[in-house]
């Protein structure tokens, strides 16, 4: 019986084991190996270059940009999406009926392909678009949205925030619902105003849901590709050059497979450490304020 169960367990788990070997273990070793070569993705020959790829990567403007761009996206995207999803959650929370329908409605942007949302935004921001016509006529503003570094970064962050707002609002809503209503009643009696109520009661009690959303959002900032590829190609002047964009263009446009592998390894290490540190800081911040 024991051994039969044991065999069955391994049999059922075998798809994962197979997958882990073929699509995790082998690629992992292969990528370490590649990063020490100068292979160009097509040529049958290559030679070992040791750590030269890494040294070159550290000096490259594209890689340096990618390092900072991840944090720039975090600085713009995370507050934006948190604010929007809290607003949506608060709006939905205030409705006695049809909550579900509104939540479904707000979730719809999550279904959009990054290509589609980028193309729509490109249309909305094209030179002769109603938005730009209006800005020119009303304020004399002529903004080159995708041609200036900060505007391009902001546009991409906004598209991604648009996508995730409804999803995160759903998580926050369930956080709101787990808050005991009596706490509010007690606060009402003590004469607490709405502003204080939000910051002193709702916000701390929302912390677990907020923590989840923050971790998800920070994860998103390290994986941005589609919108950047479609809209800016990493430009202008590397202002939106994310890690994925840098690796993609090095490996599959410039065919520097060895060099790109080295960048991918640097990117992974940086991503892993950053997320780990931010996570610990968030937990510390929560603990210090007595939330959990």
């Amino acid at each position: 019986m024991r051994t039969k169960e044991g065999r069955l367990g391994w049999l059922f788990a075998s798809p994962y084991l197979l997958y882990a070997v073929v699509f995790f273990l082998i690629p992992l070793v292969w990528s370490l190996f590649l990063s020490a070569t100068n292979w160009n993705l097509i040529s049958p020959t290559f030679s070992f270059v040791g750590i030269q790829n890494y040294l070159e990567a550290f000096k490259s403007p594209g890689v340096q940009a990618a390092f900072f761009v991840a944090f720039k996206f975090m600085a713009v995207f995370v507050p934006l999406v948190i604010a929007l999803s809290i607003i949506v959650a608060l709006i939905v929370q205030g409705l006695p009926r049809f909550k579900g329908i509104f939540l479904i409605g707000f979730f719809l942007p999550y279904l959009a392909s990054g290509v589609v949302s980028s193309l729509i935004v490109k249309g909305i921001l094209s030179y002769n678009s109603p938005v730009n016509e209006f800005l020119r006529k009303a304020f004399g503003l002529d903004i080159d949205w995708l041609g200036s570094p900060f505007a391009a970064l902001f546009v991409v962050a906004l598209i991604i925030a648009w996508k995730f707002t409804g999803y995160y609002a759903l998580i926050l809503t369930s956080g709101f619902e787990s808050i005991n209503k009596e706490v509010y009643e007690a606060a009402m009696i003590d004469g607490v105003n709405a502003w204080q109520r939000f910051w002193k009661i709702t916000f701390p009690l929302l912390y677990p849901a907020l923590y989840t959303v923050l971790i998800l959002a920070i994860g998103v900032t390290f994986g941005i590709f589609t919108e950047v590829y479609q809209l800016t190609g990493g430009g202008p002047n590397f202002a939106t050059n994310t890690w994925q964009m840098e690796i993609f263009s090095r490996a599959f446009t410039n065919l520097q497979a060895g060099y790109a592998s080295a960048i991918a390894i640097i990117a992974s290490v940086v991503t892993f450490i950053s997320i780990y540190v931010i996570r610990k800081l968030l937990e510390l911040w929560g603990k210090r304020n007595g939330w959990d």
Partner: peptide, 20 residues
Amino acid sequence: IILFQMFFPAIILLIPTFLV
């Protein structure tokens, strides 16, 4: 192992998976 792999940045696997 699954939990470890979940938190592992997948970008490192892009090029070698293509080669596989």
